[in-house]
Write a protein that binds this DNA or RNA. Sequence first.
RNA 1: UCAGAUUAUCAGCUGAUCGCGUGCCUAAAAGCACGAGGAAAGUCCGGGCAGCAAUAGGGAAAAGGUAGUUACUAACGGUAACCGGGGGCAACCCUAGGGAAAGUGCCACAGAAACGAUACCACUAAGACUUGUUCUUAGAAAGGGUGAAAUGAGUGGGGUAAGAGCCCACAGUUUAUAUCGGUGACGAUAUAAAGAGGUAAACCCUACCUGCUGCAAGGGGAUGGAUCCUUUGAGCCUAAAGCUCAAAGUGUCCCGCUACAAGGAUCUCAUCAUUCAACCGCUUGAACCUAUGUGGCAACACUGGGUCUAGAUAGAUGAUCAGCCUAGACAGAACCCGGCUUACAGAUAAUCUGACUAA
RNA 2: GGAGGGAUGCAAGAGCGGUUUAAUUGGCACGCUUGGAAAGCGUGUGUGCGUGCAAACGUACCGAGGGUUCGAAUCCCUCUCCCUCCG
Length: 109
Amino acid sequence: MLDRKHRFHGYSSLKKVYPKTTSVRGSFISLRYLRTNRPYRVAVVVGKKVHKSAVKRNRIRRRVYEAIRLSNQLPESTDLIFNVYSDQVIDLDFAKLREQIDELLAKVA
RNA sequence: UCAGAUUAUCAGCUGAUCGCGUGCCUAAAAGCACGAGGAAAGUCCGGGCAGCAAUAGGGAAAAGGUAGUUACUAACGGUAACCGGGGGCAACCCUAGGGAAAGUGCCACAGAAACGAUACCACUAAGACUUGUUCUUAGAAAGGGUGAAAUGAGUGGGGUAAGAGCCCACAGUUUAUAUCGGUGACGAUAUAAAGAGGUAAACCCUACCUGCUGCAAGGGGAUGGAUCCUUUGAGCCUAAAGCUCAAAGUGUCCCGCUACAAGGAUCUCAUCAUUCAACCGCUUGAACCUAUGUGGCAACACUGGGUCUAGAUAGAUGAUCAGCCUAGACAGAACCCGGCUUACAGAUAAUCUGACUAA
RNA sequence: GGAGGGAUGCAAGAGCGGUUUAAUUGGCACGCUUGGAAAGCGUGUGUGCGUGCAAACGUACCGAGGGUUCGAAUCCCUCUCCCUCCG
C-alpha cells in the first residue's frame, strides 16, 4: 500500500479526473493517466465482475499496489488509475506482474 | 479393534527485508505499542443508539408477527429442562406442537353421493306379466365399484325378510367430571356421555407481542429580514369574482399533552464558518478472560481477581525470500451488541453407546 | 453499508392450489400463393430420460433445494443470481 499523500481522496476527486484521462492497455490491466502540477496520485480499481469474492479482489488490489510501489519508473506529477479486468492477477508470478506495470508506466513516460 | 453419538477448542507457524493504518511522544522526523472472523456473510429476528416534542401517555381500529409447558434473558421467532408425537438395538436425534365438538370457504377428475344430502352393481320382500341374465314399488346402507378421502369404532356373537352399534362382550378413540402425582404442559385410575371426514404454511377464532424511519440515522449555521405561491373554514355579497379574518404538532381516529408559530418555495441582505461530502457520531461495552468459588438438573445469575483487545473513510493488516510440519478450508470489520441461518480442508481433547475378541 | 423489487420455452410476457393452460405475441421451420421474392393465409415449433425402425406415447422440469397438502409455477422456509433507490 502506498503512502496516504499519493492516493486519491474523496468520492468526487476520482470522478472528476476520470473523463479527462487518456488510456493505455496492458494484457490484464489498463491504465488511464492525466498530467497535473501536483505530486503523483495512484488508484487501483478492481470491479466486482473481476471476481465475486471480496478476499480475492483485495488480494489483486494489494499485489498491484505493491508492484507499483516497488517500481522506480513513477512519473513526477501525474494522476494514474489502474483498471484491473482479469482475475488471473491472483496467481500471476510477481516478477511478471512487475514487468507489466513497468511496461505500462514506460508508455506513459 | 471396528462402527457410531454428543460437546468443546484450534483454523498454519517461525525468522529476515521492504511497506500501510491508528494511538502515544514530538516543531517535524525517528522510535515504541496495537492492528479482521467463527462465521466479519445472508440481513432472517431481537435490542441499544439517533431523528420524528415523548419510557414515543391512555384507549380504539387497521396491518403484521408468534404459537406445548416452565424457566433463563435487556429482549427475541433465541436458549435450557421437561411434556406429547415420530425415528434408532442403543448413546441419542427430529418435531410451524393452540382451536376443525364457534362460523365461512374449498375438496378438481372419477363417482349415486364430497358432507343437513344420496343409491350404479350386488342383497331382501311384495306385486306384475311378455315366466327371465325381466320390470315396478318398498326396505337396508354392512359388501363391491369410484376416488387422496365415502358418514369413518376393530374382533366375536346375537338379531333380522335382508341388514346395520340395532343390541351385547372384549379391545380402542374423544370429551366431561372426580381422585391421586406434578408449579405446569401432562400422566395414572374410576365414572358418565358421544360417534365427531380432511384442510387453519385457506379466511378466521383465542392468547400474547409490535409506533415509523435507519449511522447514507443525526449533528455540523443559527437568528432576524424580504418576496411569492397554495389549501380549508367563516364573514361581507342574490351568486360568482374580489376583499377581510382565522388555521399548529402528535405521519389513522378520540382523549390527553406540548404550544401560541398555518404550510411550502425562493432570495442571500446582516453576523459567522469554510481547500477535499472536512470533522463529530466511532468504539469501555447487556465487553472479554479467569476461579478445585456460591446458587441452579441446565440455560444462566451472583461474587472475587485480572485485561483494554481494529476503528479505516475510494477505505489500513500486505509483498518477497528462507525454514518446518499434520501441507493450510470457508472467507475480509464499515455504528455496536444478543441470537438464528448458510459456507467450511482438516486437527486435537473429553464423555457416552453398540458389536466382536482376550483376561 | 442500509432499504425495496424480480427470476416462467429462442425473445417478450399472462397465469384463482385441480383432470389439459405451460395462454398470447414475436422469432424460426415447412406448406399454399407468385415467373421469383415480400406481404398474406395455414400447420408446426422447449429440454432431459425411458419405450419404439419411425410416427407416437409415458414421465420429469416454471432460478435451486426442502416442507405443508390427496395434489404446488401458485402457500411457507432456506439458498443462488439480477435490477432499482438513499446525501
